[in-house]
């Protein structure tokens, strides 16, 4: 099967050299020949292909964390903070696993972060991802993080790259489109529904007051919104097994940051509000204040 797959592809590639020059020459200007080869491989072979999936995972403080500003006033005090996998990344990981189950292939999870962030890769390994890559970096700059992720993708040439729509710590919403731009690929953010047929995808994304249907070709970058799927939980024996699975560590790229944190503060505390009972008189007074004092109705 595998031999036939390769054989048919080789022939197609030979046949397609001229064809590809005018069909795809504009699509992958900045990418490598291998990517072009990939594209022909999947588009014209007509055989079921196995999907190479890359999913980016980050570690964030639990949503119930009470934020305390650290001594340097530039980040939070991490003492006593419980860290979890970024909730939106759970949807991305689940989608990656489902795509593999449907199409065959491999799922690689990658994390850029401090040492403790390896924990999210352990969770991913417990959920049966095939490979885990850890890149140590304490940078809070999204461009640095995106560049590191793009470097991994450049090497492994995934068909689909998945992220959560944003990390719930810095809420930047930057990484997925930046990675797509660095790789010259299409991107769909805030994806609440994803369908992949061969090398084309249709996705639904949330917009103000509605939804948008977007289509694109693979390879593509997708960021997951809540509602995309229902993430599974790892089983206890798998959690135990994951502890001894390998995590590949890579050095961070030498990318210069483009932003610098100059300070972090808590939002200004609010003054004491005016609190009333629930009598008719109280409710009338509230409406009067909203109209005359706050002038919001």
């Amino acid at each position: 099967m595998q031999t036939k797959y390769f054989a048919s592809c080789e022939i197609l590639c030979l046949h397609s050299i001229f064809f590809c020059n005018f069909v795809f020459s504009t699509v992958y200007i900045s990418t490598t020949e291998t990517t072009l080869h990939y594209y022909l491989f999947h588009t014209f072979s007509g055989e079921p292909f196995s999907m190479n999936i890359l999913v980016g995972l980050s570690q964030v403080p639990d949503t119930t964390t009470k934020i305390v500003i650290g001594a340097d006033s530039k980040a939070i005090d991490s003492k006593g903070v419980k860290y979890i996998m970024n909730p939106y990344d759970e949807f991305a990981l689940e989608e990656a696993l489902r795509l593999k189950e449907k199409n065959g292939g491999t799922v690689t999870a990658v994390t850029v972060g401090g040492d403790t962030a390896k924990d999210v890769l352990r969770t991913a390994l417990a959920l049966q991802v095939d490979k885990a890559i850890f890149i140590k970096s304490d940078s809070a700059d999204s461009f640095v993080i995106a560049s590191n992720l793009a470097a991994v993708a450049q090497e492994s040439k995934p068909d689909v790259i998945l992220f959560g729509r944003q990390s719930i710590d810095y809420d930047s919403f930057q990484v997925a489109p930046m990675v797509a731009e660095l790789l010259d690929l299409p991107s769909v953010t805030m994806t609440s529904k994803l369908e992949i047929n061969g090398t084309s995808l249709t996705a639904e994304r949330d917009i103000e007051g509605g939804k948008e249907t977007v289509s694109a070709s693979l390879p593509a970058v997708i960021s997951a919104q809540k509602g995309l799927n229902e993430p599974r939980y790892p089983k206890l024996p798998d959690i135990m097994k994951a502890k001894s699975k390998p995590i590949e560590e890579r050095a961070a790229t030498a990318t210069a940051a483009r932003t610098e944190v100059v300070g972090m503060e808590l939002p200004a505390a609010k003054g004491k509000g005016k609190i009333f009972g629930d009598s008719d008189g109280d409710i009338s007074e509230l409406v009067k204040l909203l109209h005359e004092e706050a002038k919001v109705i």
Partner: peptide, 21 residues
Amino acid sequence: STGKEIAPRLAVKLEAGLAPD
């Protein structure tokens, strides 16, 4: 929803730092 998707691409193209939201 659109601006958040455009801005990171734009920043890469302009080699610019991006301050979002």
